[in-house]
Design a protein around this nucleic acid. Structure first.
Lengths: 251, 251
DNA sequence: AAGGTGATTTGATGCAAGTCATGGTCGGCA
DNA sequence: TGCCGACCATGACTTGCATCAAATCACCTT
């Protein structure tokens, strides 16, 4: 088990970002990640109605967006930074169910409120939509709900992949899969994709892969010895043998 | 690792069920499980349009509905029997991502086709809808897509629960959770909920919980010794101490 | 009733990953 | 500049679950 994140919500100074990218009410047209969100492919009129209900948020690292069980009043789009979603057992064991990067969506919830807690990893910028008002827009613009169903379906596919990983892959396969997936996600966002950025801690990675910190650390060390990766820094890993890494990931 | 299901698709004689419950074109109004499906709460006109595109299927046990990667041309509602969904690794390791019972929905897929294989466990009756025609109905009846988003959200919540189980629970906690969940699902369907029915094999349970057959068997034996359960038969388990079982499940 | 076959249970043993303990590294701050 | 605390790496050991190997059970078929 690892630290719980809630501990030490050290109030970090929140730098006001000068750049205004994202779904700001006045600026959705300039949003860099729009094509990845449910804001993609909307008509100008629909965009305007969306912009009218959105609130832009800036959060420092290690801030809670909401806790598991909270009534689900908002949905969010991440426009900058990284967020982790997790569930806890009463004794503190933690499972991270996802890492969100720029362009990712969160907030779908059943009748029991949010099914996970959400906490920022780095300073984050978000678009926040009141669920109630979004539901009203669905009636006028069914295409919006269609987009959302598409996102939910993608999430479901990813969740099933993660079940296969958690239930049936070995530690080395888990870590290799994780690095490759992060690399792919970088590419989709127009980033290099090869020196992979790891905004999360080893503890977060462990709780995402169903391992311990020590096993993650040892596995990365072994990959370094096997020349599969090179560690430029703690948060930056170069994949030096993507092909062999992919073989390893598949068993 | 366990048997793969594909082996021995022994052609079982398919009994033609006399009863015509389910979403048969002529009989959606009498469907026993409608309230659990996206057919719930539709207006008569919408029901009629749905009934016009549905095909009723009867399948024997151990039949494939489709394979992972197949192009996703249909979605299904299970009206009788049990279905398992699973993903395979190249070396044969298997993760079952879900068991479907009467009233459950399957077939949501991203652009790469179905993300899992689907195989019947027992004789099964299904309603099959062509995805293309369903999409056309969405344009006319947005409420249908709304229902579907609700179902997808519920599935997502369940998937996150399963990640917590696979990544962080012990073998005993996994089996206890599994039995309690099956009991709850029985209740929702108006069944007793206490002698729990297990239509799947020990191997299926193992591949669902990320364990081996032997560990599942040993864990059930231990629960029997601890008077937590009583085994009426291989497929029927009585929960004799639901409270203690729930404590065990939560760690 | 006998025999065959697959599914389940049980026991013995091994190993992958967890736990415990220690030391190193890095960044922030007085 | 040097202390401090969080994070990370690594060695020693422990253990939960997997693996391997039989035995038993459930159920068909003849």
């Amino acid at each position: 088990m690892t630290e719980l994140g809630q501990k030490l919500p050290k109030p970090v100074a929140m730098p006001t970002r000068p750049r205004s990218a994202g779904c700001a009410a006045a600026d959705c047209a300039a949003c860099e990640v729009r094509s990845l969100t449910f804001c993609a492919g909307l008509k100008p009129e629909e965009m305007g109605r969306l912009a009218a209900i959105v609130t832009r948020l800036n959060l420092a690292a290690r801030q809670m967006l909401f806790h598991e069980g909270d009534s689900a009043e908002f949905v969010y789009n991440v426009t900058h930074g990284a967020v982790k979603l997790y569930k806890l057992l009463p004794d503190g064991r933690r499972q991270i169910t996802g890492f969100l990067l720029a362009g990712d969506f969160l907030g779908l919830a059943g009748k029991d409120g949010y099914s996970y807690s959400a906490e920022t990893i780095s300073p984050v910028e978000l678009c926040r939509f009141p669920r109630r008002k979004l539901d009203q827009l669905f009636v006028v613009f069914p295409g919006l709900e269609h987009q959302l169903l598409g996102l939910a379906t993608d999430e479901l596919v990813a969740a099933q992949d993660q079940m296969l990983l958690l239930g049936r892959r070995t530690a080395a396969e888990k870590v290799a899969s994780f690095l490759l997936r992060l690399s792919e996600r970088g590419k989709v966002r127009g980033q290099p994709g090869n020196p992979v950025q790891l905004p999360m801690t080893r503890g977060d990675i462990a709780d995402y892969l169903g391992l311990t910190i020590e096993t993650v650390s040892r596995t990365l060390s072994q990959m370094r010895r096997d020349q599969l990766i090179r560690q430029r820094s703690l948060t930056e890993i170069e994949l030096t043998a993507v092909e062999r890494l992919a073989d390893l990931a598949q068993g």
